[in-house]
């Protein structure tokens, strides 16, 4: 799994990591039962603090996306579900249309929020 960290971003690193794992689960790149890399390995590779990675993992555990088991590491939870392909495709189509219409991201987000309300 690919992890990326932008140290210049205002978004905390643990949130960046949690977001990437969440998206990987939602897009079906990580399935229930898949093991996440050990936090120590991710921290070492990214040159970030171990507790930053653990914070991201704990956040995902609280959301029910992953399970943390002593001795077995972090596993994608059985409750975690990938988004149906039709929804992913619809989102991609929306983004393409928004780009063509030169809409700013916050406008698109507002429209989606309004539609969901």
């Amino acid at each position: 799994m690919l992890f990326r960290v932008d140290t210049t971003s205002s978004e905390p690193i643990f949130e960046q990591l949690a977001h990437q794992i969440r998206i990987a689960i939602l897009q079906g790149n990580l399935a229930a039962g898949d093991r996440l890399p050990p936090a120590r390995e991710v921290a070492g590779a990214l040159d970030v603090n171990l507790h930053t990675v653990l914070h991201a993992y704990q956040m995902l555990r609280d959301e029910g996306q992953i399970e943390l088991r002593r001795g077995r590491g972090a596993l994608v939870s059985n409750q975690a579900q990938a988004v149906p392909r039709e929804v992913t495709e619809a989102v991609a189509a929306l983004v393409t249309q928004a780009h063509q219409a030169h809409l700013a991201p916050h406008i698109v987000v507002s429209l989606v929020k309004e539609a969901l309300a």
Binding site: M1, L2, F3, R4, V5, D6, T7, T8, S9, R35, P37, E41, V42, A45, L46, D47
Partner: peptide, 15 residues
């Protein structure tokens, strides 16, 4: 290639 901005650090780990 992967989309990685100059400010980003990327790692890939897998078993």
């Amino acid at each position: 290639r992967v989309a990685l901005s100059d400010a980003e650090t990327g790692v890939w780990v897998s078993r």
